[in-house]
Design a protein around this nucleic acid. Structure first.
Length: 289
DNA sequence: TCCTAGCCTTTACC
DNA sequence: AGGTAAAGGCTAG
């Protein structure tokens, strides 16, 4: 199946899948293979043309955020030279709509880890607790359902390289499974309320909650602040803060009030699509090092 | 091969 | 209330 994207709909599949928002996509040749909500499919891009198999167009449009007006978003967040440069360099990068459950566990695992290690952990979890699916002669694994992780032993979880995150993943899985937690309900809550609910899960603080809201629940105003965003702010947006504050956040990790301050800055400076600005800044900052 | 710094932070405890 | 240390181990250089 193929669709042709109009030039008014900028999209870059590679940037979108490589920028660190998703962890379980695999590239083989020209094709990207993904497992989303228990289903394997593949997709490739040639210029304005998107070709995919084993999935329908509606899903592709929703998952890759193709129905969002990225030109409008880019114009709205293009507040200064720095962000404009990132927008230009990674034109077509879009925020995906991951499965919220997988996204939650992914970002609980992601704390204090680098991206390759995160990928490794999630692959391990899927191979150990997910279902094997064969597609195009290759083996893939679905992401484990809450019930499966809620009944896993801590020894088995530890083998996946989760370290001290084992109890967070286990307890969160148990809560989601036993309360039959409805992630979809969060979509209709205001940002702050949804964030508070997510932060009730063990292992989920402000940053992880922001990531889940942005990457899976369509809260595009969420502005996750990690070390890279902190660096970008120190480098390009220092004039918005006192030198005393800048000095404090310089070396150590952020306290919750410091996080709240940087988060609020991003949201008020970039506006309702601050999450998009965050991802461009993040990718820009990371690829420059 | 070994070593070290750093990692898309959260929690428990002063 | 606000700051701080510990958490476990992988990865990149």
């Amino acid at each position: 199946m193929k669709i042709r994207l109009p030039s008014s709909c900028p999209f870059n599949l590679g940037f979108t899948l490589c920028c660190g928002q998703v962890f379980r996509w695999e590239k083989k040749g020209e094709w990207w293979y993904g497992v989303v909500k228990g289903k394997v499919f593949k997709i490739r891009q040639r210029g304005h043309e998107l070709e995919f198999e084993n999935i329908d167009e509606d899903f592709i449009r929703d998952y890759f955020g193709l129905n969002e007006d990225l030109e409008k978003i880019a114009n709205q967040i293009a507040k200064d030279r720095n962000i404009k440069e990132a927008l230009k360099e990674f034109k077509g990068l879009r925020i995906v709509r991951q499965d919220p459950w997988e996204c939650l566990i992914s970002y609980i695992c992601a704390t204090y880890k680098n991206i390759s290690a995160i990928k490794h952990m999630l692959l391990n979890l899927s191979q150990k607790f997910g279902e094997k699916v064969t597609f195009n002669g290759n083996e893939f694994y679905t992401f484990p359902v809450p019930a499966r992780l809620a009944t896993a032993t801590s020894t088995d979880l530890k083998k996946c390289g989760l370290g001290y995150r084992v109890s967070y993943v286990y307890e969160t899985a148990k809560k989601v499974h036993e309360n039959v937690f409805d992630f979809e309900r969060l979509r209709n809550l205001p940002y702050e309320k949804a964030k508070k609910e997510l932060a009730n899960f063990p292992g989920v603080g402000l940053k992880v909650a922001d990531c889940v809201l942005l990457f899976s629940l369509g809260k595009l105003e969420a502005f996750p602040v990690d070390v890279w965003i902190k660096r970008a702010i120190l480098k390009f947006y220092s004039k918005h803060f006192s030198s005393d504050f800048l000095e404090k956040i310089g070396e150590k990790s952020l306290t919750s009030s410091q996080y709240a301050k940087l988060n609020m800055f991003g949201r008020s400076y970039f506006g309702e699509y601050a999450g998009y600005a965050q991802e461009y800044l993040y990718h820009h900052q990371r690829t420059q090092q």
